[in-house]
Amino acid sequence: MAFITISGYPCSGKTQRVEQLRAHLESRLQDPSYEGPPLKVVVVSDDSLNLSRSVYNDGRAEKPARGALFTAVQRQMGQDTILIVDSMNYIKGFRYQMYCAAREHKLRVCTVFVVATHEQCKEWNASRDDSRAYAPETLENLLMRYEEPSSMVRWDSPLFTVPWTDADVPIDDIWKAVTEGNVKPPNAGTQAVPKAPTDALRTLEHTTTTMVAAIMAEQTASGGLGGPVTLVLSAMSKPRVSLPPRNITLSELQRLKRQFVTVHKKAITLGTTEKGAVDWSEESIADKFAVYIEGNLKP
């Protein structure tokens, strides 16, 4: 349904804003005047995943922690969920990665930027207990590395900025974004590439080889008269192909077979960007090869 990215400096009050946002959203979903689909509000955060603040002390530890967060986010995405990710999300590349995942799931998206000054973040960090506080040098490093969201880029838009002086989040605008905002369809850059079955290469090679042999046998039996013929490859696969009224040489068919196999082998090994699932069954390959032969054999 919707995906809300929370972003802000460490110790800037993000979790407090998330609790305000969650309360408002749940209240509106339970209101008798709400007529939309039944939805739940889910929050994924460093704390919910038991990620210690110490992971940000070292880049080698931070990377797998960020990976765990992304995996948890993907697992919770769904049409029945308003998902809020409560973390710094200070790297614009990571926000873009989550945006792409949201587009794959056809979710509405928005970003909430929680703003506080460096001095306030340091003061609030110092007031925390040891288990939830950042090391002073880590906090300073994160403040310097933070990549601020921008309404000018699509993965941060629509962007709602909540300064420390505001008592509450702009729930009316956020509610409109998550319930009425545009759902951007997946594109070639965000779609998962369909994978071919493990036996697709073997089926491709076997089917085309069998068809070449069947065409040569049919030509011998008919004396090279040509015309439409039905090739019986198996009980399920009986492709029809129109042959020219002349003797077709084995070298011609072998050349066409190599070209056909080369093109389709790339689609199998590298993936395909065709819409929907691609059929790599014997019947489908045979029909495609028949069309290819008809279009490339000289009269």
Score class of each variant (00 low, 15 high):
Phe3Arg: 09
Ile6Val: 06
Gly8Trp: 04
Gly8Tyr: 06
Tyr9Cys: 02
Pro10Tyr: 05
Cys11Glu: 04
Ser12Met: 00
Arg17Tyr: 08
Glu19Pro: 00
Ala23Cys: 08
Glu26Val: 08
Leu29Trp: 04
Leu29Val: 05
Tyr34Asp: 10
Glu35Asp: 10
Val42Asn: 11
Val42Met: 11
Asp46Asn: 15
Asp46Lys: 13
Val55Lys: 09
Gly59Pro: 00
Gly59Thr: 07
Glu62Pro: 04
Pro64Trp: 01
Arg66Asn: 02
Ala68Gln: 05
Phe70Asn: 11
Ala72Arg: 06
Val73Trp: 03
Gln74Phe: 08
Gln74Asn: 15
Gln76Cys: 14
Ile82Phe: 03
Asp86Cys: 07
Met88Pro: 15
Cys100Met: 12
Arg103Thr: 09
His105Cys: 14
Leu107Gly: 13
Val109Leu: 09
Val109Glu: 15
Ala116Thr: 13
His118Ser: 13
His118Leu: 09
Cys121Leu: 07
Glu123Met: 13
Asn125Val: 15
Ala126Cys: 13
Arg132Phe: 14
Ala133Pro: 15
Pro136Leu: 05
Tyr146Pro: 05
Ser151His: 11
Met152Lys: 11
Val153Leu: 10
Arg154Lys: 02
Ser157Asp: 03
Phe160Ile: 01
Trp175Gln: 03
Trp175Ser: 01
Val178Leu: 00
Val178Tyr: 03
Glu180Asn: 08
Val183Arg: 01
Asn187Phe: 03
Thr190Trp: 00
Ala192His: 07
Ala192Cys: 04
Lys195Glu: 09
Thr198Asp: 06
Leu201Gln: 11
Arg202Asp: 10
Leu204Cys: 07
Thr208Phe: 09
Thr208Ser: 08
Thr208Tyr: 04
Thr209His: 03
Met211Gln: 11
Val212Cys: 14
Ala213Gln: 07
Ala217Trp: 02
Ala217Ile: 04
Glu218Ile: 02
Thr220Arg: 03
Ala221Ser: 10
Gly223Gln: 04
Thr230Trp: 11
Leu231Val: 05
Leu233Phe: 11
Leu233Arg: 06
Ala235Thr: 05
Met236Ser: 12
Pro244Ala: 02
Leu256Glu: 07
Arg258Lys: 07
Arg258Ile: 12
Val263Tyr: 02
Ala267Glu: 09
Lys275His: 01
Lys275Cys: 02
Glu283Arg: 07
Ile285Ala: 10
Ala290Gln: 04
Tyr292Phe: 14
Tyr292Cys: 09
Gly295Ala: 13
Lys298Met: 06
